[in-house]
Design a protein around this nucleic acid. Structure first.
Length: 426
RNA sequence: GUGGGAGUAGCUCAAUCGGUAGAGCACCGGACUGUGGCUCCGGACGUUGCGGGUUCAAUUCCCGUCUCCCACCCCA
């Protein structure tokens, strides 16, 4: 049997209803904040991710689906292509390529599949879905303003609330400018040197390969040591400090709760200032449902103009998962099950189904060959609210028997009023 | 990529010491062609994840492999 490949999966009803629900809410909220949708290609040149995500990141170094193109055209030959592992690089590429600043497009969102070749785990797949948004543009357009950071965070809080996600936490930090981080990194290395020998094996390795990761350590014995390490907050220059304070002030004024977490860090050079994560318990080790931050240097890193930006990405798989526990029953249920009484009435039943569907009702059409008891069973299984009889008597009299499946109550309704009746009784 | 656990019917799970594979739910048909989800009867349920080995005999023991789950690594 051919199966879905490792780390990919089929999303089946009724779960797909939940996905649709989430995406509809996202579009609704994005619209209120005047974000517009962008769809970028699902694969790009490998170079984009190497430069946009970073050569040295694990994503680029070992988690990408990369292959060599073999097109006919000379220019296609041997070009290295990659399934997108995230969507920010693609959006910024499009921003530069189409000079979106000239069109006043600086608030964009996307929903779509991304690909990373990681070991699958709950809530972590090789094809996964992200919902994200980016504010990007020349600083004269206000894209560098702390107001944008706060707006995005407030929007996310609104989205999670509207989705009915309970108990989320917003963790917030500022990672400063590249210069701030360079001096912080230096101080961190110096501070680690005398104490690293007392730390866990993982930290000893991190201290060499990626000192920032030491802050992620969960080993209890290491915590006192980590608590005494320098923090990025001590290295912020005046501009970054002010920016971060302004973001916090706006958040407080709009009533979005947050937790300062000065262990929250980002490794890449063009990440700047605000960094954040929304976490949610009951997701196991993968407790972050979304994350994001500023990337004021990204456009330039990709050869574009200076264009400060801030964005986020939501792990849709995880979001749906955390929603599934509390979500109401979203399975699609027909408003009415039409039961033709006898094969000869199939045609008439089809006409009525067509009329009702045109009125935006959810209609399941039965079969005149079914015995009536079987029609009832079928209607019950589907959860139909009503059963409509289409028999000789009804066609002759023009009055149709309509039975409420829950109450057992049965009424006789003129054909022309069927749709109105079904709608009004919703 | 590393470590651990698990794979038996569509689903949830059983199968004694190694002795030819079972239940409930769900599914299909009938009793039952103008009024219900009940009931009764019948049906299909399977390459025991896959491959190899040991054995007269493997769901069971051994090896390999695949997939999922948990964690690590890492990350939006």
């Amino acid at each position: 049997m051919i199966k879905a490949v490792r780390g990919t999966r089929d999303l089946l009803p009724p779960e797909t209803q939940l996905w649709s629900f989430v995406e509809a809410k996202v579009r609704e909220v994005m619209r209120a904040y005047n974000f517009q949708e962008i769809r970028t290609p699902i694969f790009e040149s490998t170079e984009l991710f190497a430069r946009g995500v970073g050569e040295d990141t694990d994503i680029v170094a070992k988690e990408m689906y990369t292959w060599e193109d073999r097109g006919r055209a000379q220019s296609d030959q041997g070009q290295s292509l990659t399934l997108r592992p995230e969507n920010t690089a693609g959006v910024v590429r499009a921003y530069i390529e189409h000079k979106l600043w000239d069109r006043g497009l600086n608030k964009l969102y996307y929903i779509g599949p991304q690909f990373r070749r990681e070991r699958p785990q709950k809530g972590r797949y090789r094809q996964f879905f992200q919902i994200g948004a980016e504010v990007i543009g020349p600083s004269t357009a206000g894209s560098e303003s702390p107001a944008r950071d706060a707006e995005i965070l407030e929007m996310l809080a609104t989205l999670l609330d509207r989705l009915g996600i309970q108990g989320w936490n917003l963790e917030l930090n500022s990672v400063g400018c590249p210069a701030d981080r360079a001096s912080f990194n230096l101080a961190l290395k110096m501070a680690l040197e005398p104490v690293v020998g007392q730390m866990c094996a993982d930290c000893q390795r991190r201290a060499v390969t990626n000192p920032l990761r030491v802050f992620d350590c969960k080993v209890p014995g290491d915590q006192p040591i980590i608590d005494r390490l320098p923090r990025i907050s001590q290295f912020l220059d005046e501009g970054c400090r002010k920016h971060f304070e302004d973001v916090q002030e706006i958040l407080k004024s709009v009533g979005v709760p947050f937790i300062l977490n000065d262990r929250l860090v980002r490794g890449l050079d063009y990440y700047t200032r605000t960094a954040f994560e929304f976490t949610h318990g009951a997701l196991g080790a993968q407790n972050a449902i979304l994350g994001g931050g500023r990337y004021d240097g990204l456009s330039e890193a990709l050869g574009g103009p200076a264009a400060p930006g801030i964005g986020f990405a939501i792990g849709e798989d995880r979001l749906v998962m955390s929603l599934a526990e509390t979500a109401p029953d979203l399975a699609l249920k027909p408003d009415v099950y039409i039961a033709p009484v006898g094969e000869r009435l199939n045609a008439e039943a089809a006409r009525i189904a067509r009329e009702l569907r045109r009125e935006d009702l959810v209609v399941e059409l039965g079969d005149g060959n079914f015995r009536l008891t079987k029609s009832f069973d079928a209607a019950a299984k589907l959860g139909a609210r009503y059963v409509l009889f289409v028999g000789e008597n009804e066609v002759k009299s023009g009055m149709f028997a309509l039975k409420n499946q829950q109450t057992g109550e049965q009424v006789s309704v003129p054909r022309a009023e069927l749709a109105a009746w079904l709608r009004s009784s919703k």
